[in-house]
Design a protein around this nucleic acid. Structure first.
Lengths: 210, 210
DNA sequence: TTAGGTTTGTGATCTAGGTTACTGTAAAAC
DNA sequence: GTTTTACAGTAACCTAGATCACAAACCTAA
């Protein structure tokens, strides 16, 4: 935990803060596809992501999902933090997209550190800021873009966070994230294949030129 | 300014913080329809809204707008704050929905107070939290609801913030906020009128039973 | 009063995407 | 091996909402 913690957060956090994190934080590791939090859960600790990626989803009344954004190395979930501080239930679902290693910090400390460390305060604010901007991007995407473009964006982003030119998902899984139907995804993917932008296989998609 | 400041923020802020706000804050008042901030602007101070309502809009590359949410009494614009602290340009447009009175606080103070006052910290975090939740509502709305429902929600919300059963907008203006076309709005409104939920007039709409 | 702009109503047509239905095929289970 | 299940391809059809076109009603200014 030492080296990763220092590599990733050393520039932002004061020495004593790093020490505190080391002593109270709990290092945990999850495989891909693990649900870290669900809608309605209460939250008592916050993750500082050391490696891997986490996807954040929203669900409507009918159980339809929509991918909001990914968390990556060095980031944390502001929505979670907001829930912690506000003592309210989670409004989102968090699932590891890849294997992920993180430090869990109890909520009381988080608050204490806000008063104590400028580095922590800046980190938390930057984090909120990033999440707000990402949510606005998401709004832009669903409000202003058509599905063709959203699909392309999705594939590129997913390829980035998994660090893999090959998207290991079924069309159905993609459809869930984009909140559309499998048939539509298959159709659009086939169109992209005809444009030589990717090649389709069972259970995976090879990105060629997106 | 005194009485309003104390009435609205007295419960959340420490006495010395209230004093500071009173001494460095600038009281300003705008009529309805005033643009307070535009996309690309730099921000040097933050509003604490004493009365009235402000609408926050997002715009895409083609200049198409979309209403994100309203700010109301006692609230502040986190996106603005994020821009202040991050020294980045505004990603949103803010327009007074009604006549609005607010205290403008310079950005340096805001940061100073974060370290100094727990009340301020809580306020700022609650504010971020509210904005995140509101943005998620907006995402839900455009991702999961059809236009009929969004229009009804819009009319109800607008009636709330203006505190007026009568919506003083043209169909075109509503269409801008919902990011659709005037023709579609007229059609849906006519449908609602036939369902006896409202009555239509030139330049205004009377809500009857929504 | 008239002219010109603005707002609203409505029919006709178009399109992205949703839905249903059925097929072939790869992979897994037996 | 054979059977079963999950995944993908594709045609046919449907619908919400977008777009175009035009007319009527109203409002303002000269």
């Amino acid at each position: 935990m030492e080296s990763e913690l220092y590599n990733i957060f050393g520039n932002h956090f004061e020495q004593p803060l790093l020490e505190e994190i080391r002593s109270v934080g709990k290092l945990v590791q999850y495989p891909a596809g693990e649900m870290l939090m669900d809608i309605g859960n209460y939250v008592r600790s916050m993750p500082l992501l050391l490696s891997g990626a986490i996807k954040i989803l929203r669900e409507d009344d009918d159980g339809d999902e929509l991918l909001l954004y990914y968390l990556e190395q060095g980031e944390t979930c502001s929505v979670t933090m907001a829930c912690c501080l506000g003592q309210t239930k989670s409004e989102i679902r968090a699932i590891t997209e890849t294997e992920a290693k993180m430090i869990m910090v109890p909520v009381q400390k988080m608050e204490e550190w806000l008063a104590k460390y400028k580095g922590w305060r800046n980190y938390v604010f930057d984090s909120y800021h990033s999440r707000l901007n990402e949510l606005m991007q998401t709004v832009d995407s669903i409000a202003f873009k058509n599905l063709d473009q959203r699909l392309v964006d999705y594939l590129i982003k997913k390829s980035e966070v998994t660090n893999d030119k090959c998207i290991r998902s079924t069309h159905q899984e993609i459809a869930y994230d984009l909140h559309t139907s499998r048939v539509v995804v298959s159709r659009l993917l086939k169109k992209l294949e005809k444009m030589k932008k990717l090649t389709l296989h069972r259970n995976h998609i090879e990105l060629v030129d997106l």
